[in-house]
Design a protein around this nucleic acid. Structure first.
Lengths: 217, 217
DNA sequence: CGGCTCAATTTGTGATCACTTGAGGGGATG
DNA sequence: CATCCCCTCAAGTGATCACAAATTGAGCCG
């Protein structure tokens, strides 16, 4: 099956973990449309494993809210209601504002440079209208910043929220007609440079909630 | 099989779900000491199921951070570092302050009465020095309030944090020599009655972080 | 008396299979 | 033409087994 080189941490990874990671990435990056159905046998066939590891991966993702299990056990990506989306956006704001706050005193020039580079890629994805690429690099931008917060539990929660929003995000950003580069990311970088905590908090809050405006507003 | 009466929501529940719920409750209420080892075959034996549903329950709990899986797959309850505990406490503060804020405008007299009744039970548990009972009723107090926030995703996250703190909480509260009733709960109730949002936020923050003082301070 | 080695045993992993249930389609009926 | 019913097949659940890895404890040597 997949004979491509794997990153070190994936070397000799158990089957269920391989499947889990592959599906997780797909979902988080919006590569699966909301409401799409999955089957354990289908997943097993695709990754060349039996139903057992497929089931473990699916249940793990369901526990994280990335997949929806119907009462009869059928598996699909969740179709979020507007209320749910708003709530998850509020969670993003809550968690990510805190994470950025904690990262601020630890953010040195090397980090800011790296963020600017990633942001360049984000802008590129926007102009190319590559939705999946945009989501991926956008999340990389945020994760890079939040890693500096040295708060693994909080970051894990934020990623769980991203995961839940994944399938919906694609549809959401698909409506974005804008081709202008991410303005809020620039504000975040500027606030980091200036050591301006209130400005940073505001910029992060705006960035994580802006995608929602066009849905609810 | 298991012919004992089950609660309504457990009726005809799949085996893996029964096991999951039973273990989850045990962990959240602090009935398992940190670092305790579990085995799939042992769990299967206890609940009279095979390894398969035991594995699903364990992996689901591991995904929620309630169990720790060693690199070799061995299962145990996590032993949290002080940094981790502080971070989880910060998460509790963040999430629960927000939840209480959202619950405030919806908190009518019936809810406040119910909170006062639960709080009576909490006080009773304190005087009886019943650690598990204390944790259970204390969480019931918080959950009852937060349910009014109408924010299921946020509440689920808060419960995940409780779950992660479960095994540690017992040890934590075991050090509490106090037999005085929960003062912060009274402040919460008072703030709810008065419709005092800043006071409520402060009281909730104090309540969820107080247990930590004796650890870090 | 303490540390090391090796083997027996415990434990997780993954495949396979029997069983049951629920979803979806096709046809008959009003 | 719509609705309802039944039937079939697909899909999840859970048990069992073979296998590999790791743990543990006994026995031995220093």
């Amino acid at each position: 099956m997949n004979l491509t080189a794997r990153s070190p941490q994936d070397a000799a990874a158990p089957a269920h973990d391989r499947v889990y990671r592959a599906l997780r990435t797909r979902i988080m990056h919006g590569e699966i449309t909301p409401g799409a159905a999955l089957t354990l046998r289908g997943i097993g066939r695709e990754f060349d494993v039996s139903m057992t590891p497929a089931r473990e991966a699916v249940r793990r993702l369901a526990a994280e809210g990335a997949l929806f299990l119907s009462s009869s056990g059928r598996v699909s990506t969740p179709e979020l209601t507007n209320e749910r989306i708003e709530e998850l956006a509020a969670l993003r704001a809550l968690l990510e504002v805190e994470l950025s706050s904690r990262a601020l005193p630890r953010a040195h020039m090397a980090l800011i440079d790296r963020l600017q580079m990633i942001n360049g890629t984000v802008a590129e994805m926007v102009t190319k209208r590559d939705a999946v690429g945009y989501i991926r690099t956008n999340l990389e931008f945020h994760r890079t910043l939040y890693l500096r917060a040295q708060a693994p539990a909080m970051l894990a929660m934020a990623e769980t929220v991203w995961l839940q929003l994944g399938p919906t995000m694609r549809a959401l950003y698909g409506r974005l007609r804008r081709t202008d580069p991410p303005q809020n990311h620039r504000l975040i970088i500027a606030a980091l440079k200036a050591g301006d905590e209130p400005g940073l908090r505001l910029a992060v809050r705006s960035d994580v909630t802006q995608g929602l405006r066009l849905l609810t507003g």
